[in-house]
Nucleic acid binder design. Structure first.
Lengths: 339, 339
DNA sequence: GGTGGAACTGTAACCGGTTACACCGCGCGC
DNA sequence: GCGCGCGGTGTAACCGGTTACAGTTCCACC
């Protein structure tokens, strides 16, 4: 008869066993209102005896507070998302919230269905915009939400973006400073706003220094290792071969690196390589991968923290915040190249 | 006046507007019971007009079905967890369930608190045992649950384990076959059952072939890259230096690889290196990392699928299932070594 | 015309909590 | 002696759905 949590038991039975009313039991459990010490003792005793655990769902219904927030992601893949989720989860836990996560939502219709299913189950939302979902998502009015990446409607919700353009520019300038002039880009999927911001930032930074990013030097990937691998194979056949490659995220850079290795192309001597995201593994590659650090976990934390403010009604004017990014130079782009 | 989802509206208001009873609205929305076509049309029209979206929480309360399952993890870090979560989420989505995930639970007391908080919010649980939590977790009776790793009470719940011993044995034999005799182990954290199973499997396999895994050849890590890096530095000072290293997971193997690279130790020529998990990135390292494949996403999927059976009451006898593991040989252990 | 039953719909009692409001008893000030 | 305030408690109405059960209507068939 160990006192184990018994799911079949309700507050009324506890009340009956303790010979008090349900209101009293509720008050004891929530430390609300004045309670006679003896009554409290008795109630707690019965609660322990019966192994009563309040039913969270029922509580939510009357308090209109679910203590959970929904996280909608385009995908759950790779270190970027595990880092992001880690930040979100940590911050949520700190505030006593749970995280309801759902991945693989690229179609707006799908996201919409999810939003409906989540109605009444979450107190707020963190939505990461994806490929085609941009304008189509309609957040139920009244439901606090923050966006990662571009928000569907400017100004309606706070959003946290990465400084894609700034990071890409830093990479471009770094590669130019190395002396590279024939520079290739493995871009992210078109339609993805992060991907496009990186591409444009990169292109314009090169252009500002008089270097042209011609179409043959751009290969579109999908942010996964495999596509980086394939892209590297394609780029290596160009004549003249590029002397530097910027992969729009680290996963693709890793795929690229392995392809170059297989081809016997020396990095950074023959081709310098840089990625984006600075996932934890980047520094442990060999050569260490030059990348753009974006503090992914911190991004998740900040988004969550902002959402909590929003939920408590203490949110200020919704702003579009940009998380700074910083170039981290490692061995994959070490040493000057000939012009 | 675009028809947007309006959270402030309830089924009674819909019923009033459509001049029918709440029961009828409910029946229309859930396609239950006979409904006159004209009535259905009218109700659906009003629903669309008002932008009514049923309140999931309220529905859960009366149906006693939350359509979500809880996932309790010791941590959310690195590719292992993102892969695992991906498998879980995919399978859940297929069955119309949501995933409530919570990480960073190593203390049993914490897990217990979480279990209480989840009561009435989830229809089932996937619990990944961690360091010290082994025996202490008490799943509320009646709540379907499956475990990843060792279940706290044998036989009460289904569990899915990785074939740690088999995988470790395969690595041991492979390294021995290469001719290595002085073999080191970077183990996982003591207290972690996966870590211990790998260590013992490895030790006994070596012993079976007459090779001793002396204490100086074992360095304990924590499953993160950093600890693998540190372990490699320590091992490299031994004289004679080991000629092969088995890191108990890929993250540590990656850290180890980078340390060896920094030290100028050739892999696999001077030291052969193998990991465990075969995370997606393993094949893109250079040299490609020999590892033990465990189909992490599939593990998540299978656990989830089993949980769904359990929830529907169609669960068979709870069994302890072991996911097979397979050695994947790559360049990091290529070529024979001298005896 | 009467009857049985199918089709359709409404009423109200749940699900398991929270909480506004009413109530009771008692000590205190006047 | 009376009214007031306050600590402590109970009753019952919510929260927003589902659904058992009880009607209605209406038609088919005897």
């Amino acid at each position: 008869m160990d006192p184990k949590s018994n799911p079949g038991i309700s507050i009324r039975e506890v009340a009956a066993a303790a010979r008090v009313s349900v209101a009293t039991v509720s008050r004891v459990l929530n430390a609300k209102g004045p309670i006679h010490p003896e009554t409290r003792r008795k109630v707690l005793e019965v609660v322990a005896d019966l192994g009563y655990v309040p039913h969270g769902g029922a509580r939510s219904l009357s308090t209109r507070r679910t203590a959970s927030i929904g996280v909608i992601l385009p995908d759950v893949y790779g270190e970027f998302f595990s880092e992001l989720l880690r930040g979100i989860d940590q911050e949520a836990k700190r505030a006593g919230y749970h995280v309801l996560v759902s991945g693989s939502h690229s179609e707006p219709a799908e996201v919409d269905a999810l939003l409906r299913a989540l109605h009444g189950r979450v107190d707020g939302l963190i939505v990461m915009g994806s490929m085609r979902s941009a304008g189509a998502i309609r957040i139920p009015p009244g439901l606090p939400a923050v966006f990662l990446g571009d928000p569907p409607t400017r100004g309606a919700h706070p959003s946290f973006g990465i400084d894609n353009a700034g990071g890409a520019r830093a990479v471009a300038e770094h590669l130019l400073d190395l002396g590279a002039r024939r520079i290739a880009l493995i871009s992210g999927p078109s339609g993805n706003s992060d991907a496009e911001a990186r591409r444009e930032g990169f292109r314009s930074a090169l252009a500002a220094r008089g270097v042209d990013l011609s179409p043959e030097l751009i290969v579109e990937g999908d942010f996964r290792e495999e596509s980086g691998h394939a892209a590297a194979l394609a780029l290596s056949t160009l004549v003249p071969r590029p002397t530097a490659i910027f992969a729009a995220n680290d996963a693709m850079a890793i795929g690229c690196l392995s392809a170059l290795r297989e081809l016997g192309v020396a990095v950074p001597e023959e081709i310098a390589l840089a990625g984006f995201d600075d996932v934890p593994i980047a520094r442990y590659l060999s050569p260490g991968l030059t990348s753009v650090r974006v503090a992914i976990a911190a991004l998740g934390e900040r988004a969550m923290a902002r959402l909590l403010l929003e939920i408590e009604g203490r949110g200020e004017e919704p702003r579009q915040e940009t998380i700074p990014s910083a170039l981290v130079v490692r061995a994959s782009t070490a040493g000057r190249q000939g012009t």
